[in-house]
Design a binder for these strands. Structure first.
Length: 485
DNA sequence: CCCATCACG
DNA sequence: ACGTACGTGATGGGC
């Protein structure tokens, strides 16, 4: 199983102060790995987790290790995604990590200051209304204040039996008391400040003056990447104030930030895998897919009959399908009755019967074979499908539905990344790929190379030939927010 | 160290 | 009749 080997074998060198120099200029001494003199081991005896297969393009020795690891793994690999995709991609990721991204720390410093002021005001109001001071950040203390002192109706308990004070619970309390809303407001500001505004500037590397994330190729069970130290795949965007953070992601002098993202890639993948004619024709003709879904679910004859409420509901169904949605989950998210949600799902499957087939096929496949796989053959084993525990089995079923979809989308963008990076390097362009956020690629485009944008978009759209076209939206600007179309 | 919460696709 | 949508990572509280 590829993932299992890669988890242990191919973590790239850490991008701390030391290793940037290390990566660029110093070949890894082979003796560090196999020892020397009479302690010297054969290459074959080196535990896989000590091998660093692809750290430095310029170092012969790392290349040898890379080749060695390829051979070593070849005997064990079930498929060739490792060779065709993940090994080549590891070099692309190493380049992106080393390149890093510029951060406007003055902007973030000002932002932090403004956040702190607002938090201080909220804090005072909360203490006033609660009638005492307490730690707002402590769910335990907050629970006591809200549900014992103020006698507000407690919602769900957490799984450890304590009062839940999460977003869903506090929102429902909004009309009982002012405090819950103030808490929510305080939390969102606090999150922005501690996780982003304060943290990012402190991670600027002194040598490069940029921040360097780690891309982990081996943790996500679906084949997605993960980003850490810092995580640059969860930079805020959903609210007006939070997306200010994105203004701090800026290009170096003479460049612009360009962002290109796949439109509806997971739904397109479902359309392809399930071969549902309705959905394929909707994507082929470039229709508004949520409006089209609304027409089908609510049995409307004409697109002009689709209200914004229809569309909103249909969008939520489309969103939930790849997760193995339930009537309960849909009802919760839409604030509608269980019965209405159930009816919508039934109507959906009646109109998109092949999607239902896909779900049933996935469940049957995983029960028979113990795994599911993506278009390129990446596998996820789901042993819980045999569990006597109903809950674990249900989770495994939903994961079996989701992984081929999420994973195929990951395969596609990985393939695009390899071809774009190779092309940028081979042609000697100054522009570089900086970041990947699951369905989005972010570049730094040199001012003389703006013509590259349409070629990048083209390469992304032709990364895979599906039964539906792939569509990419893109934009360019003086920072990430402006670039994100 | 785990838990709860919340940021993203 | 069961509990409740998939995949991640960072933070602060509290034991």
């Amino acid at each position: 199983m590829i993932a299992a080997y890669l988890v242990d074998s191919s973590q790239r060198l850490k991008m701390d102060d030391l290793s940037i120099t290390y990566l660029n200029y110093t070949p890894i001494p082979i003796t560090d790995l196999i020892g020397s003199g009479k302690d010297q081991k054969s290459m074959a005896d080196v535990p896989l987790d000590e091998l660093v297969p692809y750290a430095c393009e310029d170092a012969d020795i790392t290349y040898q290790l890379y080749e060695y690891l390829k051979q070593k793994l070849a005997a064990d690999l079930l498929t060739d995604v490792a060779h065709s995709l993940d090994f080549p991609l590891s070099r692309v990721l190493a380049r992106m990590e080393q390149k890093g991204v510029s951060i406007d720390k003055n902007l973030l410093a000002d932002f932090s200051e403004a956040l702190q002021k607002d938090m201080d005001m909220l804090e005072a109001q909360i203490y006033e209304l609660a009638g005492e001071r307490f730690n707002i950040q402590s769910p335990a203390q907050l629970g006591t204040i809200l549900f014992e002192k103020l006698q507000l109706p407690a919602g769900k308990k957490t799984k450890t039996g304590k009062y839940s004070t999460n977003e869903a619970v506090l929102s429902k309390l909004a009309h009982h008391h002012q405090v819950p809303n103030l808490i929510l407001e305080y939390r969102s500001l606090s999150k922005l400040k501690s996780t982003y505004s304060d943290a990012l500037p402190s991670l600027i590397n002194e040598q490069t003056n940029r921040i360097h994330t780690d891309y982990n190729q081996c943790v996500a069970a679906t084949g997605r990447l993960a980003s850490s130290n810092p995580n640059l795949q969860n930079i805020p965007i959903r609210t007006a104030r939070s997306r200010e953070i994105r203004k701090a992601f800026i290009p170096q002098q003479g460049f612009q930030i360009m962002s290109a993202d796949y439109s509806q890639i997971e739904l397109r993948v479902i359309a392809h895998i399930s071969e549902d004619e309705q959905m394929i024709s909707a994507f082929k003709s470039g229709e508004d897919i949520h409006a089209r879904t609304a027409m089908e679910i609510f049995q409307l004859d004409n697109i002009t009959q689709v209200t914004s409420d229809h569309r909103r509901k249909a969008k939520e169904v489309n969103f939930g399908i790849p997760y193995g949605l339930s009537a309960f989950g849909l009802a919760q998210n839409l604030g509608i009755s269980n019965a209405e949600a159930k009816q919508m799902i039934e109507a959906y499957f009646e109109r998109f019967p092949r999607i239902l087939n896909y779900i049933e096929d996935s469940k049957n496949f995983v029960m028979e074979h113990g795994y599911v796989s993506t278009l390129l053959g990446r596998r996820r084993y789901l042993p819980d499908i045999e569990s006597p525990n109903w809950n674990l089995r249900a989770f495994a079923e939903r994961a079996a539905i989701n992984m081929p979809i999420q994973g195929t989308a990951a395969d596609i963008i990985k393939s695009a990344m390899i071809s774009i990076d190779q092309w940028l390097i081979n042609e000697g362009f100054k522009s570089r790929m900086l970041l990947q956020v699951h369905d989005e690629l972010i570049f730094e485009i040199h001012e003389d190379e703006q013509a590259l944008c349409s070629i990048i978009v083209n390469k992304m759209e032709s990364a895979s030939e599906l039964k539906v076209p792939l569509k990419v939206d893109w934009g360019m600007g003086a920072h990430w927010l402006e670039a994100h179309s």
